[in-house]
């Protein structure tokens, strides 16, 4: 059943988001070809119309990178509000599937699309660089050299950072979903209530982080690296970031449970 929920969730989100992502890549392609074409030549200086078109293209491109992230955000929220908390809820919540499955699928799919969104932006920028004549081969060579010099534990560090970014994304999505599931129990001010609850969650999260930091500080000071070597530093950072990740996982779990409770027991469709 979970697999089927994932199938329909992906279908619903990709039919809105994929065309946009393709558009962004197309714009990047056009722009990089344009750039490559006019690079090093005097075409732009000689033809003002061309320069104007170039400027417009570039602006569009930058705007599209921002727009795509905002669009992803809007589509995800719209989907949750309509499918889980709106009219489609009559269909979804009468399926022989638990509320937890529904929410889990929504959060995971949304996270995946955010990752795709980020990847699209990165690819778009890379395409632009290619157009500007970046030599990827040479860059990779230099990078390979550099990697050998890095202290041990860097790989773990990078993994930690990557996991943290994914968890942070999931955390944002989960807190929005939880805020909405609580806010939508109100009959008249659903959106305002949701925003209110979201801010509350944000404040609580901050307070908890601060509190934890205060508690951890003395302990950290004790274990702080005696020598300021790169290896010890890396070890410290890894521990630190792993701690953050655990905290994020705990917060996500708590919010997830709260969201499930509200969707199962306080559902207020239509």
């Amino acid at each position: 059943m979970l697999g089927k929920l994932f199938k329909y969730e992906f279908k619903a989100l990709s039919r809105k988001l994929i065309p946009f992502y393709i558009l962004v890549l197309l714009l990047a392609l056009i722009h990089s070809v344009f750039t490559g074409f006019t690079q090093g030549s005097d075409l732009l200086k000689d033809y003002t119309m061309l320069a104007l078109a170039y400027g417009v293209m570039f602006s569009l491109f930058v705007i599209s990178l921002f727009a795509v992230s905002i669009f992803t955000f809007i589509v995800i929220i719209q989907r949750f509000s309509r499918n889980t908390l709106g009219k489609e809820g009559y269909l979804m919540h009468t399926l022989p599937v638990s509320a937890a499955s529904h929410i889990f699928v929504k959060i995971v799919t949304a996270t995946v699309f955010y990752i795709i969104d980020a990847a699209i932006c990165v690819i778009a920028v890379l395409m632009l660089s290619a157009g500007m004549g970046a030599n990827f081969g040479r860059m990779l060579e230099v990078a390979a050299e550099g990697i050998k010099e890095l202290p041990p534990g860097t790989f773990i560090f990078v993994t930690n950072v990557a996991v943290m970014m994914i968890l942070a994304t999931s955390y944002s999505i989960t807190s929005i979903c939880t805020a909405m599931s609580i806010g939508y129990t109100s009959n008249s001010h659903k959106i305002a209530s949701s925003i209110g609850v979201y801010l509350l969650i944000y404040v609580i999260h901050n307070m908890l982080s601060q509190a934890l930091l205060q508690i951890m500080m003395p302990a950290l000071a004790k274990h702080a690296p005696a020598d300021i070597g790169a290896t010890a530093y890396m070890k410290f950072m890894n521990l630190w970031f792993m701690g953050i990740n655990v905290f994020l996982i705990a917060m996500i779990a708590v919010l997830f449970a709260v969201c499930c409770y509200f969707v199962k027991n306080k559902l207020n469709l239509e």
Binding site: A12, R15, N83, K87, E88, G89, Y90, L91, T94, L95, P96, V97, S98, E270
Partner: peptide, 19 residues
């Protein structure tokens, strides 16, 4: 979940995904 698999429900509003 057990009852949902043997109950067929028609709500009084349009609940099917329009797309």
């Amino acid at each position: 979940i057990g009852t949902k698999s043997i109950v067929s429900y028609l709500p009084d509003c349009m609940s099917l995904p329009e797309w």
